[in-house]
Design a protein around this nucleic acid. Sequence first.
DNA 1: CTCCAGGCGCCTT
DNA 2: AAGGCGCATGGA
Length: 308
Amino acid sequence: MCSTPSNSLNAATSDECAAPPRARTFPILDYDLAATLTSGQVFRWEFQDRCWTGVIGKRWLRLSSEGGSITAETAEPVADWNWLRDYLQTDLDLGAVLETFPDDEPMRAAVDSCRGLRLLRQEPWECLASFILSSTKQIVQIRQIVALLCEQFGEPIPGRPGGPPARAFPSADRLARASESGLRACKMGFRAPYLLATARRVAEGEVDLDRLRELTLETARAELMKLAGVGRKIADCVLLFAYGFPSAFPVDVWVVKAFQGLYFPKRRVKAARLRRFSETHFGPNAGYAQQYLFHYMRTNARRSLFIQ
DNA sequence: CTCCAGGCGCCTT
DNA sequence: AAGGCGCATGGA
């Protein structure tokens, strides 16, 4: 795979009782890795040498997709791969999710254009911090800010074999000890005080991100929205991308634009109304449907189907 | 040059 | 409750 000698996987599987492998292949159908990693739910993956290179927790890795499988290669041996299975959500029955989508023209177009788009299950702090940085920014700029933040504050971890160290996403503890000007140096502008205040509250334990898993969607959302720089939209992104609440439905400018022309062609529609509409129209996996529409709007549609 | 970007917080009505 | 505006920064 990738640009490395391709014997790592074979060596690992043929050499029983040896050290844990550095590579692992997951058989999976209907998984569009490129769409998934570029669809604006996550901001650190880079495509180079026909592989996707990124960091999950404190592990550097690269992913490649061929036919009916995804192959992962890490910097160091891994005994238990459940962390990656969970992140990629490889056990999810995507077909069952797609079946719950409404059978209307825009939904069909969105699914047809990127069947295999998935939702990841991200680490909550990284997801929360990244989306605090996302407001009124284009995805390319969010990626740049996050990259600078990781370079500046992230813990060095083993990277590509023979290459420089990679960086973990900086912890809340570390960012809580940063200065506002230090954060502004990462080009995040007016978002710096928001990120700093939220990092401090998480670091102090005033908000326990792990505990949110046990709450209802509404209660978890209310907890997130107590944090600086976290409104309804960013809270819903975290609830969907990190906690896996399937009905969390982030409404952003793209979703407003898409729905405006489709379902509310006459009057100007507000985000609150779109959220209520989404609860009934898109079914139990409304969040998943939203991600398909969002990605479709950003890539294929532009101003063809939705905007006359 | 202007316009706008996966918004939020705060200030007016 | 609902609408308007400023906030940094950089693509398009």
